[in-house]
Write a protein that binds this DNA or RNA. Structure first.
Ligand SMILES: [Mn+2]
Ligand SMILES: [Mn+2]
Ligand SMILES: [Mn+2]
Ligand SMILES: [Mn+2]
Lengths: 222, 222
DNA sequence: TTATATTTTTAGACAAAGCTAAAAATTAAT
DNA sequence: ATTAATTTTTAGCTTTGTCTAAAAATATAA
């Protein structure tokens, strides 16, 4: 089957939202895609007709097996292009997303497989997110939130959940990137903020809000 | 200004057609784009409203300066991607066109400039066609048709006009590619067919139809 | 358990891009 | 100079994907 750019973006957004919740709502998806709820209902009918999701009017929706597979191939394309842009064209990790958002819709199967090979079969994109394999299997990563890391244990930054411009700016300012070594020196119970130490900086404090969006792994990367 | 995928394909097709003739017709463009004449008329009105071409109903049309500039930036994107696909991803020169036809519509300006740099500022695409520079200037190439090459003068294949699958198959079979050294041994006045000799083959004959689509240059490449 | 608020769907419109069939203009042929 | 053939445009319909405003369903609160 072949899907339109719009359909692909909807599928991808539903996948993203249903990772946390068990079922996705209309308003929520409308906000995610910056469209209006009415448009969501329309598209849901089409995607249901194409048997990509379970959907009971008023009851919310969820991708089925086929829909999930489609989502993962789009995510694969997206993340491979992000890797290309960052690794080969030297874009900053905060610049790659928007361009990949367009490139991901170029359909050719061979294109993606050759790109993958050319890039050396990378397993993580520049944001630390795993790249699904050709069959749509996702690497399981043993990463934990920075807020869950025990005191004085050295770990490496492996991913960032919130990839908004604001968050990326904060990380850039603190010289935190994928691979940065990091140790939590203190947690303040008052506001859950954490004091951390990286190789390149003297200790500093970041908010809980920031910390819970940063993922780390114990030393050896899987 | 920003143009839709359709608009870009129309502009590019008009550019291609008006290279030979002074003015382009509706049926002609419809054939080129595999659409119906009525659709052409509709789109022409839009492009005229956007001031990209001269157009008098029933009288034909032609890109103006602005339209030509737009056409050349699309062609630039197309040919840079073709070069990438062929050079980096090892696609055959007969496979790159269709994929580039999609990639060319990804708009980011920086993307194209960085891609250009990454590729080492190539000046010709895999079919031997010149890549417009960032300002939209086209290399002038001193190439002539194989039919115009004098007898026994060594030249190099520099381009192919007809890039249909059939033509490319013929060239592949004869081991003719961009850069191949070639000498015309004889021209048959009866049907204008030419006998040629390449490095890798004993002499053989090709039709006028094929020969006039092959362009060659005298030894030093500009 | 009614009343109120929120969420979701429906109804009706619109712009982009395409098509078919019919009308109009232009060109070519008697 | 008519008539015939060809080219081009117009009129009217269709499909996607979007929107606003109103109606319906569900959830929350008094
Ligand atoms: Mn996208
Ligand atoms: Mn990413
Ligand atoms: Mn195209
Ligand atoms: Mn080409």
């Amino acid at each position: 089957m072949n899907y339109s750019t719009s359909e692909e973006d909807y599928i991808k957004a539903i996948y993203r939202l249903q990772e946390n919740q068990s079922t996705v709502g209309t308003n929520e998806l409308a906000a995610e895609l910056k469209t209006k709820p009415a448009s969501i209902t329309d598209m849901l009918k089409k995607l249901k007709a194409k048997k990509l999701l379970h959907y009971q009017p008023y009851r919310g929706f969820r991708l089925n097996e086929e829909g999930t597979k489609v989502a993962l191939t789009i995510i694969r394309r997206h993340r491979l292009w992000e890797y290309f842009l960052s690794e080969k064209l030297k874009f900053g990790w905060n610049e790659v997303h928007d361009i990949a958002e367009e490139l991901e819709h170029v359909g050719s199967h061979t294109l993606i497989e050759r790109l993958d090979k050319y890039l050396g079969f990378p397993r993580f994109d520049p944001h630390g997110d795993p790249i699904p394999d050709p069959a749509g299997k996702l690497q399981v990563v043993d990463q934990i939130k920075l807020t869950e890391l025990p005191l004085d244990v050295k770990a490496k930054v492996s991913g960032v959940t919130d990839q908004s411009a604001n968050m990326l700016e904060l990380l850039k300012h603190r010289h935190i990137a994928i691979g940065t070594s990091i140790v939590v020196k203190k947690k303040f119970d008052f506001d859950q903020s954490v004091e951390i130490k990286t190789d390149r900086n003297s200790p500093f404090t970041i908010s809980e809000q920031a910390a819970k969006n940063i993922y780390v792994q114990y030393e050896p990367r899987s």
